[in-house]
Design a binder for these strands. Structure first.
Lengths: 235, 235
DNA sequence: TAGTGGTCTAGACCACAGA
DNA sequence: CTGTGGTCTAGACCACTAT
């Protein structure tokens, strides 16, 4: 990966934990031991362990050690920071993305204020998983950062295109999950099976320099929605 | 608070940011400057700033500085690590908690496996906000850690009781958000207004030593559910 | 080039768990 | 008491932004 020692150690340990080289409830080697193993300083080991803790692999307990947690590692944030393609792949699902709209539009007042731009790419896509259209995504991107979008790109992964081709670095997102009544577009482009409501995930995505870059509204069929979170109390 | 320098600095800076002493988009003083201001080392300042970043107050940009983010600071996780009482108070809502069941039960197989106990407190409570019963909470607690629960405690805040009276320290939770069809108990104890589904938040809450302690199923009326999240890409 | 944040070190002292 | 993780320091070097 990168040149960072602590990231490398994190990834090595995370891999070991995913491959269950250590059982749930057992303890990681102590920080001192890891320090020796990896020929590095204690603070560097601690950075790696803190990453593990933040990501739910371990729980550090003073005086005892680092306990391996039972984390079903299928968890991932719905939309926003992980692309739909990655998600579907991880879940081992067959999926089809269909592009319904792709053009440059003038933003509404709310969007103009959120994204601070006079021109935005608008992309409307439905997501079909196992033969059913269950997600309807509407994305708005800054034209400033994205000169060109094509149907081919939108059908594959816009995120991959942004990060790999354009070198944009996504950093963080504010997300809001609510439930709304299905609108006519939902009824047209999703297989709702008579369900009256949809789960709506709105995300405002930012780049590394903290500038707002993308707004997404993701509308999910109720019965296919699942959101898993790992909440750690602030210390 | 505690004796920790970096926590104190974090709290002081967070307070300043909440009181808008710095505007969105402006920059915090540099790490070197803060180091001098607070008579401390750079790593300590960096710990405080990392806390600010983790909690969405700032975004650190290499070569530039720490940029103040526009974070509506009303965000909080729904259920699990924040008590209903805290939540309602923050939102400035009138609320009533009604206890429908409170006793010791033998756990189901799933619960026994999750919590590893042969005896659990079961508490069923409805939450009324602004005159409407919109949330139905079912909690299971380890009797091992909680010798006594009374209706009075359950009507107020069980969390306050656990942390203040019993000295238990809650640490982290796994949460799952789904939508389910309303069941007869939902219809009886909630004002559903004909809505056919409820949002279900399941949480498995752990103590500081990583032992599972509490399982909660929180059922929310669709139209009153809102979940706000701040997602940071792993680095 | 000067100023910023990012990583890393080697050491110190403290708080807590367990034998 | 020993071993664990938690905090803090003073310094070094690197990578990036801006001028």
């Amino acid at each position: 990966m990168k040149n960072n020692k602590f990231q490398a150690i994190y990834q090595e340990l995370a891999k070991k934990l995913e491959e269950k080289e250590l059982r749930v409830g057992e303890k990681l080697p102590s920080e001192h031991e890891l320090m020796v193993q990896y020929h590095t300083s204690r603070e560097t080991i601690r950075k790696a362990l803190n990453l593990l803790a933040q990501n739910g692999y371990i729980q550090k307990v003073r005086g005892k050690g680092s306990i391996v947690l039972d984390r079903a590692r299928f968890d991932f944030p719905i939309s926003g920071l992980v692309s739909f393609k990655e998600l579907a792949k991880k879940m081992g699902k067959s999926w089809v993305t269909k592009v319904h709209e792709l053009n440059v539009v003038k933003p509404s007042d709310v969007l103009r204020e959120s994204l601070g731009a006079e021109e935005l790419w608008k992309v409307v896509r439905s997501r079909q998983v196992d033969g059913e259209r269950i997600i309807l995504d509407t994305d708005y991107f800054q034209t400033r950062h994205v000169p060109l979008l094509t149907e081919e790109i939108a059908e594959q992964s816009i995120y991959e295109h942004l990060e790999n081709e354009l070198g944009l670095s996504i950093s963080f997102a504010d997300k809001e999950v609510t439930v709304e009544e299905a609108n006519p577009l939902d009824r047209e482009l999703l297989d709702l099976n008579g369900l009256s409501h949809v789960v709506v995930v709105k995300s405002l995505v930012h780049l590394d320099d903290a500038s707002p870059f993308q707004f997404t509204e993701s509308r999910h069929r109720l019965d296919k929605f699942r959101f898993v979170d790992f909440a750690r109390r602030m210390k």
